[in-house]
Design a protein around this nucleic acid. Structure first.
Lengths: 213, 213
DNA sequence: GTCTATATGATGATAGAC
DNA sequence: GTCTATCATCATATAGAC
């Protein structure tokens, strides 16, 4: 029996990356197997190897496609502190849309082009603004720590909504069962509070380190 | 042939948790299978099920054992800002010793006793110091974001040490290949800078929100 | 409380047909 | 460039002997 072979390729690197991202988002890294991915693409697993050498190469492409969503156009115009704030928000938006990928993404840019371009833009903007290199590095790292941590998963949703969990044993948390109901407010509020605090602190430091030079 | 059965139990929940943590740290979550765990314990995989109902229960116990390492005794004595700073350092020390567990830990306390005790202590200390509940929640969440993000993995080690990666294409990163050599300084420096900035900012906010009340 | 044996099914990757 | 077929390996979990 002849094997049906489509005249037009049904696979492409882009389509594979899109579907892989969707599986990763919906069901986590464990669900992302080559068979499962192929099934959702309407092909069999071995076909994937015509487009990527290994499964890890697929994951790398997923990671870089996520980072490529981060807008970097705010750098190079206007105040560095304003740009840093806007960038942190886009960065968080991109990561928080794919929380299962955050542990992987947080391991750094490696050889991924979009991740390297991101680091280049942030660091470049800080140095251009007058920050000494050692400060620019540490500010960039601290911002990434905060954004990655806030994208790993909801703080508020980590608390059980059963009040009896807290009664007696954890008296200060007696209202924690209500966190789930307003998790968005809590998580967004914590992010914005931390972001504003960090950027305002860096502005104060800037006055001492750069302006006073 | 009779089955050799030791007079003293060779397994215990504590020993299982210790060895599971060691495997998780050395080789990651993927390497932590029941067979592998049993092998390192000198038994066969099914024996583990006499001590834990499922593999997930083992993971939960590992997670709580890590959080149990976080010292909480600084709360309730002295200034809240000093306690918060010391706590963040212990917290990071505990998490950074087990980076492969951070994504799991960051999902919140769930029903794990040590994690609930930690949340109870931090939140309680802030409220006791006079912070309104909504601020205490957001400060606690922001701190966890920062600590978790800084424990996921090294910032500095994420950059390849091959200078040719950056040449031409990422001019601002032309010195990034040197980050690996001093990754400890960079990561610790970024953490301490971010921590000091956050706590100092919260102190300023405290003067506005609580003292001015 | 640990053992042997086994059920049951998934995994990443390759060879070679078409 | 996708297919079938298959390899070698791994997984979590249960039943019942001792």
């Amino acid at each position: 029996m002849p094997v049906a072979r489509p005249r037009q390729p049904v696979l492409s690197r882009q389509r594979i990356v899109e579907v892989a991202t969707a599986i990763l988002d919906k069901e986590g890294l464990d669900a992302l197997s080559t068979r499962r991915l192929a099934q959702e693409l309407g092909v069999r697993a071995p076909s994937l190897y015509n487009h990527f050498a290994t499964k890890d190469a697929i994951l790398d492409a997923v990671a870089d496609a996520i980072i490529a969503q981060v807008d970097l156009r705010m750098f190079g115009k206007g105040e560095w502190a304003v740009a840093l704030t806007e960038w942190a928000r886009t960065y968080r938006r991109a990561l928080a849309a794919h929380p299962n990928a955050v542990p992987f993404l947080a391991h750094g840019p490696a050889l991924r082009p979009a991740a390297l371009a991101l680091a280049d833009a942030v660091y470049g903007a800080l140095v251009e603004a007058g920050w000494p290199p050692s400060y620019a590095t540490r500010i960039g790292a601290a911002m990434r720590y905060f954004v990655a941590g806030s994208s790993l998963g909801s703080f508020a949703l980590g608390f059980p909504d059963d009040p009896s969990v807290y009664a007696q044993r954890y008296p200060n948390l007696r209202d924690a069962h209500r966190l789930r109901g307003r998790h968005r407010q809590v998580d967004d509020g914590a992010f914005e509070l931390g972001l504003a605090t960090l950027v305002r602190g860096f502005e104060t430091l800037y006055a001492q380190v750069v302006d006073a030079r």
